[in-house]
Design a protein around this nucleic acid. Sequence first.
DNA 1: CGACATTTTGAGTCAGCTCAATCAGTGTGG
DNA 2: CCACACTGATTGAGCTGACTCAAAATGTCG
Lengths: 245, 245
Amino acid sequence: MGKEEYISELIQKLETTQPLGEEEQRLLRQLPLNIRHYEAGQDIVREGELAKQCCLVIGGLVCRYKIVGEGQRQIISLHLPGDIPDIHSLVLPRMDHNLGTLTSVTVGFIPHEPVRALTRSSFRIAEAFWRETLIEASIYREWMVGIGKRPAASRIAHFLCEFITKMKAIGLSDGITCNLPMTQTEIADSLGLSTVHMNKQLRKIRETGLVRIRASRITVLNWSGLCELAEFDADYLHLREQTPS
Amino acid sequence: MGKEEYISELIQKLETTQPLGEEEQRLLRQLPLNIRHYEAGQDIVREGELAKQCCLVIGGLVCRYKIVGEGQRQIISLHLPGDIPDIHSLVLPRMDHNLGTLTSVTVGFIPHEPVRALTRSSFRIAEAFWRETLIEASIYREWMVGIGKRPAASRIAHFLCEFITKMKAIGLSDGITCNLPMTQTEIADSLGLSTVHMNKQLRKIRETGLVRIRASRITVLNWSGLCELAEFDADYLHLREQTPS
DNA sequence: CGACATTTTGAGTCAGCTCAATCAGTGTGG
DNA sequence: CCACACTGATTGAGCTGACTCAAAATGTCG
């Protein structure tokens, strides 16, 4: 896969929400990319840094997180291939959180300047990036509601629904089964739960026969049942094509 | 106060982050405003609606919220005068949450079209609005961390620090004291706490002598102590001028 | 086969919840 | 000026979902 292909992932991701014109695609394909690999558990960008570039996730799973109190980690969002998790640094360069890897990851760094030039010359591209950040904010809202008000089992179910839906949108899941390369501790850190409680509640969900989990592979056996437990409604993801299966 | 003044609030708010040029200010002042008043506890926009306009908060306190489960409310964000809490509807018109009033409120509705025209003709204005939504996302992240990982007392203290800091930024607080026109139930709904627990923890904070609360008036007696309890660091608000006092 | 990471289980504790009163402040009408 | 109504703040008494600590079981991989 060449650099051409990498930008295609970005285009595919942007188009999960709204199609781009030929011209915008052409402009995006001209962006320079500095490819870099990371192992699992490394930081890509750290809190406090002044960003001069942003990173396109090409392969693997990236997370945004903050450390609070006695070193507790709250994972704030997950980023799949095609995402530019720090596109905001174009406008707010001072990082107020970290970006790290959950698996081995390939990213393409893009200097701010050419991106800024693009957003200033094409309002369509500017709006596409703006929209991405707005959808991310919408996901934050949903997570906030989950952490604030939903019981653990429902939160976990919601997490699974969202993950599969997002994976399906970029063609990495059929909507029934997909790879979830996260440890239970990492999922717990995303949901504001302890690992132990996460594990016990996950077992309960498994026992109801809604999902099957083997290693990092999850299979939804009863999508509507899982959605009901999760109170999952994909509207907040603002996808053009709706829910799996 | 005429409509001119209302747009000044918007400009003042935008400039808490970054100054605007003369030209941008002039363009913003030409935006049309349809003024409307609401009582406390009313909805301005509801989940599911397709927005064709956005609303500038002119006076009073507006909140964004979702209802989950058996009618439990999670308040997601607060909006002070000068805010356009649904500026995102320009790009994502389908509302995935509600906007409601916490006090009596005056808003100015601005049709999407002229705003869209502005953002497309002036990248500076587009970036100013984008920036606002990015800062809001940053606040979501901080709230998520609070709800997910901080104990109740710390969460409450953090809430107070943030509120006063934001009020000070728009000139509605001196950084020591300010009006907080919310019931304890409403604050609890923002923090993912029950009213009862909220009340008990708030009393504990009062007893430590960090703040004084009389009716809806709060006075910080020990700012650094409160910040310590809250682990509050105003960086995430991305203000040009820093922390109260 | 180790060595290490992850998952699972058990036991005990506690922060935060619900239910149920009571108290205080603010209007309103007579 | 007082009685009544209402909303919001406060307090008390359990209850329980979620946490911590600790250990055992199960992968996983060189």
